[in-house]
Structure formats: C-alpha cells, structure tokens
Design a binder for these strands. Sequence first.
RNA 1: GGCGCCAUCGUCUAGAGGUUAGGACAACGGGUUUUCAACCCGUAAGCCGGAGUUCAAUUCUCCGUGGCGCUACCA
Length: 491
Amino acid sequence: MSVRVRYAPSPTGSPHVGNLRTAIYDWLFARKEGGKFITRLEDTDRDPARYKPEYIQDIENSLHYLGITPDEWWVSGGPCAPYVQSERLELYQHAAEELIEKGLAYRCYCTEERLKEMRDRQQRQGLPTGYDRRCRYLSKEDHEKYHREGLSSVVRLAVPTEGQTTYHDLVYGDITFENKLIDDQVLLKSNGWPTYHLAVVVDDHHMGITHVIRGEDWMPSTPKQILLYNALGWETPLWVHVPLIVGNDKKKLSKRHGSTQFIEFIREGYLPEALFNFLVLLGWSAGEENVEILRKEEILQRFSLNGITNHPAVFDYDKLKWMNGEYIRSASTERLTELCIPYMAEARLISGLSPTQEERSFLQSIMPLLVERMKVLSEVASLADYFYKPPAEYDEKGGRKWLTGQSAREIVSTILAAITEHNREWTVQAAEEIVNNLAEAMGCSRGPIIHTIRISVTGRTVGPGLFDILAVIGREETMRRLNTALNGIQD
RNA sequence: GGCGCCAUCGUCUAGAGGUUAGGACAACGGGUUUUCAACCCGUAAGCCGGAGUUCAAUUCUCCGUGGCGCUACCA
C-alpha cells in the first residue's frame, strides 16, 4: 500500500515552527516513499477567541515558503475532498450514530457544572480525574426522558473498563496504557461538532492515511484513538511520534522564548533553505555522517524515520542565525537583491516594492559588501543606509575618539584637502592611494586616517572595507560628509 | 495526584559492550584585516546517580533522581 501522510493544522493560531517541522517530516517521508502528502484543516474548534480564519493564509504561506506543497489539500483539492473538517460534519455524525447503535458510545447529559464539580472533588481527594460514567449506565427510559426534555447532550465513547491498549510507535517503540485509566472521551460536542479525537480518526481512515506523524504531546491520546478505530472496526495507521521542540528552559516552545510562529521567521528574513535545514535537524540526524549544512535534496536523499531522535530538542536561535548566514553567503547576489527589496522599501531607502532599474542595480552592486555581516535579511537596511544618505549621527564612542578636538580637526581638513586635489578617476584603488600617500605625508599609520574617514562618512566604526565604501559613495559625497564632520567637531 | 515519555559537552547531535567519546553552534585564545564580519588555527567543555549482567558498561536490565508532556464539549 502506498504511503499517505497528513499535516493537520488547526486555524487557532499561526503555525508554529514545531508544527511545520512535522509537516517537513511528512513531506520528506512521502517523497522518499513515493507517497502522498496531504494537508487537512482541522477547524472544529469554533470558539471565536481561538478560531481565526486569517491563520489559514499563514498555513498556506508557510508551506509554500518551505516548498513543501501538499499533493492534496483544500487549495488544490484531491480525491478525498473536502480537506476541511467543517465541511465534513455529516461524516462524523454518522460515525457517532453508528457507535451509539452498536452500544459503543452513548449520549451524556451531564452539565458543565456537574463535570467541573466532579473534577474538583477528584482533585481534592487526590484521585485521578475523569468522567464518572454516570450517563453510560442510564436506563433506556431515562435516555428517552432526557431526550424528550430536550436536554443538551454530548456523545461519549464507551471505553473498555479493563484490559490494555498497546501500540507500536516507530520512534518510541511499544507503548502500553491501562484501559481503565482512559476517560470516556467526548466524541461529539453538544453543538453537533466533533472533537479532535473523532474527527481525526474518521478523516485519517477515509483519507487512507497510513502513517500518523505528529508531536510527542499526542502520545497520551493515541490509545483513545485506537479504541475508537477498534469500535468503528477500522484498521489503525502506523504511529510516528516525534520529539517536542522546547525552549531553553526545556518547556514547550512558546512566545516567551522568542519567535515561534513560522511567519515571524519569514518576516525576519530567514531563507527557506535555512529554515528547512535547521528544522529538520531538530530531532533528526543523518547518522554517522552527521553533517550540518544540507540542502533539501541532500536531506531527501538521506531521510529516514530511523534517524528521528526520541528526546526533546532545544530551539537554538543562535544556531539558526549562523545557518542562515551560511545560506545568505552562498546565495547569488541577484537573488539576495530581490529578497532584500522589501526590507529596503520598508526603510524607505528605495522607492517601493517595485524599484527602478537603477535602484535595483545599485542595491545589487553593494550587496557583496553587505553579505559578509548579514545574518538575517531584515538587517540589510541598517547595514546599508549610509550608502543612501549621510549619517544622521555618529557612533558615540567612535565620535569621541576620532571626531573630537583640535587634532581631529587637522586630520579631517588634511584628508579633505587631499581629496579635493585628487582629480583622476575615483575608484577603490584611487581611494586607497590617497590614504596611503596621506599616511606617508603625515608620518603616521593608515589606521587613524581610515577610522576618521569611516566615522565621518558612515557614522559607524565598523563595516565593509573603507575604500569600497568610498568608491560607491563617490568623491563629491565623500567630501560633503567630511565637511559636515569637520564642522561638527567639538573641542 | 495519576498516566506516559525522555536523559552524551551550555545547545543540536554522532557513537560502540573494550574509542584519546567525534562533529556543529555558542564561548574563549590566536592568526589575517583599516574596523566589524567572514575566513584559518587552537583551547575549554559531556556520558544524571545506584545496583545488577559481564573479564569489561557511558552503551544492556532494574531502581532512583530529574526534566518534560497529557490529564477539556482545545487541537
């Protein structure tokens, strides 16, 4: 049977890097096995506080960005359409009815208050919490009576009260749970919508899912779903739980650790190949080879479920940054230029998202000077601004050191004079020549001259090679900026 | 509380019943450079604890400890 795996996000949040990592595993496994990668929207939670339709766009964008377009999903359809749970409600309701008829599920009329009271009491007494199954043993007459009275009800699974449920996990091995400890799970909510457990089982079955790949936090609910498969008389898929991604405090990754939503990383300027590479490596390793920088194709070649680790992985923002820097440095200037346009436009350094040809080629020409110290694309504007406009202010320490006092005044005016005298072509070599001659004439090393010019022209103490900068900025503008610096020198 | 999972440098990980326990990020030191970055070289840093099995265990088993997850009409 050919492999079918699914990524099943819920539009109750913008997709998390952890979710996307399992989506990547899904995609890799499907590609590796010549199977299908399916994506299904699990939108059965309609609480307006959580459900936000705009997250659907985030899901689509994230998948596209990573280049792992599903073979079947709500965007392009497929043989098992619809791929949105809210459009499949009858399926779940039928399944629930069928279970009630077979006596494997039952209507429960217990109120929210009673359930809460019960839980509180259990907690106080140090007992395991769970539904006490009162409605499971209601007489037929009572059921009919409540039904006539129009009491609102949910449908619960009648979980076996003895025995064990064991399953084989492809990552974790054999896992066993005592049935008597498993709650009579709600299958259908009182509004007629399914809970996750029912919907996921029904859909995975009807969509022919062969491997359920999901986060380790789902392990405790696996036996509940297996019991459901059994009750429905369906064959279970293979289970593949993958370790959690955690923050530096080892707790489930969340906002307080830093960015967690995939689209935040897109916005910050992480390249798709860096994100793909980094995420795959959080919980998977190529084994003995143990290499770090791997392109999608190289990963695909090596990928296997066997390489998935079974312990949580701390999300290391530093390492991601390093990796992104690696990919930035290996990207072509043309591509980088295109990718940086949005950030340049946002900083108003260029006219907009569709810059003129001149703007584009200028950006491209300075890109090589920027790329060495760029870790994320969003840094580009702050790295490049002095190529576009004079410094608004000088670095405080640098200004104090190089642009203060009588000697600074002398140095700047000497430099200015030398540049004024220069009347040949203005190039990187010419700039260097001027500085060399100046150093000789002044009987000092190039250092102080270079530092003084750098701070005057860029406002910074760090950056690309000075002569490259001067060549780009041009003779006139260099002189203008030196003049401004000269006039601003305090004693 | 109950149930489940997990445990190699700070972090991601490789590893085998006998290894100088390997690599990468980060850190630190040095080189290069006009600065920063990049690059090169180097340093430091680890098998949670206790029993058992074995000639030998960090590796296998058990117990402990610790961490995490789940325990909803959320997924």
